[in-house]
Design a binder for these strands. Sequence first.
DNA 1: ATAAAAATTTAGATCAGTCTAAAAAAAAAT
DNA 2: ATTTTTTTTTAGACTGATCTAAATTTTTAT
Lengths: 217, 217
Amino acid sequence: MLSFTEENYLKAIYHLSEDGSKSVLTNAIAEVTKTRAASVTDMIKKLSAKDFISYEKYYGVKITKQGRVEALQVIRKHRLWETFLVQKLQFNWDEVHEIAEQLEHIQSSLLIRKLDEFLGYPSTDPHGEPIPDKHGKVSKQAQIELDSLAPGYKGVIIAVKDSDSNLLKYLNRIGAKPGKRIKIITKEEYDESLEIEIGKKRMSISKSVSQNIYVTV
Amino acid sequence: MLSFTEENYLKAIYHLSEDGSKSVLTNAIAEVTKTRAASVTDMIKKLSAKDFISYEKYYGVKITKQGRVEALQVIRKHRLWETFLVQKLQFNWDEVHEIAEQLEHIQSSLLIRKLDEFLGYPSTDPHGEPIPDKHGKVSKQAQIELDSLAPGYKGVIIAVKDSDSNLLKYLNRIGAKPGKRIKIITKEEYDESLEIEIGKKRMSISKSVSQNIYVTV
DNA sequence: ATAAAAATTTAGATCAGTCTAAAAAAAAAT
DNA sequence: ATTTTTTTTTAGACTGATCTAAATTTTTAT
């Protein structure tokens, strides 16, 4: 059984590794877990002793198969709870992240099975992110970061990153929700900001925003 | 903001004090929190420094007004979550206690408001216990412990204690649920066990069971 | 009323998770 | 190819929550 804290580190490592493939550096983990590098080193030792990650001193960590399964269970719980909060309790999609960060650590596999059933086995959360199944399988659509597309492209928003509640409030205000059609009009060279169209509205968004929007073309 | 652990101690003290009135001894707290007396003494100092309890060395603690309000918020959350688990997720009433012990510590007053609304503002939990309102007000029916009644009495079960999941499984099996009619046939002198009738079924229950059943007459 | 028993508190240790500061190693720059 | 900078690790300390063992206080029994 992993502790609350171990689960958080493992989840952070999983996300930073881009779904378990790439290896992750100590400082990067420290940044997203809001701790210091020294603390990360300690936790790395613990998680690698338990075989959730493999670790080469000074060269970062890689998540193991076991670690990936464990991380995906936490992510599954997070996304199911977010779905519950939005669909059943009428939360806005930009209000649920912090609460789901707590709920994701509740221990009961029966609870998650029943919650999944209650929600009608959703395949994505309110931000469009896929919900891993109970075995840790993720059915992922090809999702492209908006900032990597050139002017002229049209697509549909399929997901947004849910890490920052302020970003979500902003996306909500400009109408950038999963399912919406989006078109790139122009791209500024010097700061890579985009002029886009969502519905009938024209607007300009910075690169730090467009990086967090995923589309299909 | 209280920690998970502080909330648990405060809840334990509240319950042991029988709704905040009586004063509570160190060993009793140690027993229900499954810790040692020395640990309890430490926590008592912490909680009394924060003014949730008042403390006289060697003579136990009393909960303050502030402490009672805080404890009742945790109890409110516990009972709302139990109601959710049974009514919405189809859990049996004897399976929900441990999960609610975790859920009761989730921090978000908006969540609890919305959960309450979602459940239709229930007044009691699945075990018949009253759910305190957001101000900590408990609307309590006169509830009498079954073991204090004499043979011949008839009544209706209005609640059972939800602390022990094995007890609940047993009560479930013999049909002792809130709402059921119950009659005391005879009482054994030497062990205070009762012969009772629930529905059309006759059975004998020990004092340790009858203490946990509340009825109205 | 005093001795024995029980309960409570204190003292000191441990564990998990965190930190800062110093040391060591790797990467980047000259 | 050195030197400088950056990153990572180690060493040692702190906090919150826990423990055991010893000391203290209260309660109970004789």
